[in-house]
Computed example of a mutant assay.
Amino acid sequence: MRMRAKGWELALPFALVGAAAGWISAGVLASPMVNVALGGKQEVAAICAGIVGGLIGALLPRVVAPRQAWHGRGPAWASLAALVLPGGALAGAVIALVTVRNLHGAVLFAAVTGAVNGLICAAATLPICGAVLEAALRAERARLGSIVAASDRRAVWQILAASIAVATLAALPEWPAARIGRAPPPQVAEALALGAWIAVGLLILADAAALGYGLHRAAGAPERCSPDAIAPDPAVPRVDLGLGDDVHARLARGDAYRGRDRASLLVIGSHAEAHAALAGALRRGVVCFALGAAVLFAHRWAAGPSAVDAYHTARCALGHVAFCASAEEPCPRASAPPPPRRARIADETAVVH
């Protein structure tokens, strides 16, 4: 099966993935927990990664289509990795060169370090790109312009939105760091999660409308027939379900004057297969919607006081002594073991006497 997507149909989804990944990755790399990159370059990272992602999305159908036609889907994932990983390294090097252009003598080192960071971030983003590509490949099953094909195209955006929402979880440690004044709050990451959650909800409504109205209209054509048995009329409304080759019609019976039966509605495809596909899309949408709600709850929790205590404890456990005094529990490495039970009893007895 070949990808029917045109060269630029995946460019926008991959550009959005790149921009979101660039923004989130730049914030994570500059956060106090990681601290391997300079801060204040999230805008540059989002622009560079978005451009590279758009180019990858435009090139991907041209690379995947000929290989998939001969070898199936296996080489599609290899082609995806072969584009995403070098693209991430390129974006990381460009971001580093742009942000450290005034540091003379450190340009080459910054480019190499940025390429390594970009490669690591691209590897972390690869599952999101794979999920979007899988949805695009699944969209090949239905006929173009049909009800199921429209639902499959919405699935690409739905999976993209849910994946971006989950990716914002990487910014959670920035919330408690912001509360103690050590990092800016990741408000953009939370806004991305909120926008993705709203988008998933709107796509669920579209799938529900297709399942309710589209299939209900198709059920109004109960007569199974052959297209040759019906008088052709371009004015007759047609509903293409997208799956299956069955033909059903709502017939206006002919009489002695009209002759042949004429169709007032023509439905192409299998009602059962289309119903199963749309019901599966609704179930997937509900899961994505619940996942987005959980991500938003996680952001709200991370901005609360309990997350600050967990942040201090985590930094203390990593060896940062300055955070141990603020943690609820002393640092495990600095705390002395409790005295034996007999020694405690002896001390208590001495105090009493």
Rank of each mutant, 00 (worst) to 15 (best):
L296D: 08
F297Q: 06
F297L: 09
A298D: 09
A298S: 15
A298N: 07
A298I: 10
H299A: 00
H299P: 02
H299R: 04
H299K: 04
R300K: 13
R300L: 05
W301G: 00
W301V: 10
W301A: 13
A302N: 00
A302G: 05
A303R: 00
A303Q: 02
A303Y: 00
G304Q: 10
G304F: 02
G304R: 11
S306K: 11
S306Q: 15
S306F: 08
S306M: 14
S306I: 08
A307F: 04
V308R: 01
D309K: 02
A310T: 06
A310M: 08
Y311D: 08
Y311G: 05
Y311M: 02
H312W: 09
H312L: 07
H312C: 13
T313P: 03
T313H: 12
T313C: 02
T313F: 07
T313E: 11
T313D: 05
A314G: 01
A314W: 03
A314N: 04
A314E: 01
R315C: 04
R315I: 10
R315W: 05
C316S: 04
C316V: 07
A317I: 08
L318W: 12
G319N: 06
G319V: 06
G319C: 06
H320Y: 07
H320R: 10
H320S: 09
H320M: 11
H320D: 14
V321P: 10
V321H: 15
V321D: 15
A322T: 08
A322W: 03
A322K: 09
A322D: 11
F323C: 10
F323Y: 15
C324L: 03
C324Y: 00
C324V: 02
C324P: 00
A325C: 03
A325Q: 11
A325I: 12
A325F: 06
S326E: 02
S326D: 10
A327H: 11
A327K: 05
A327D: 08
A327F: 08
E328L: 13
E328Y: 11
E328V: 12
E328P: 08
E329V: 15
E329A: 14
E329F: 15
E329G: 09
P330G: 13
P330F: 08
P330N: 14
P330L: 11
P330S: 14
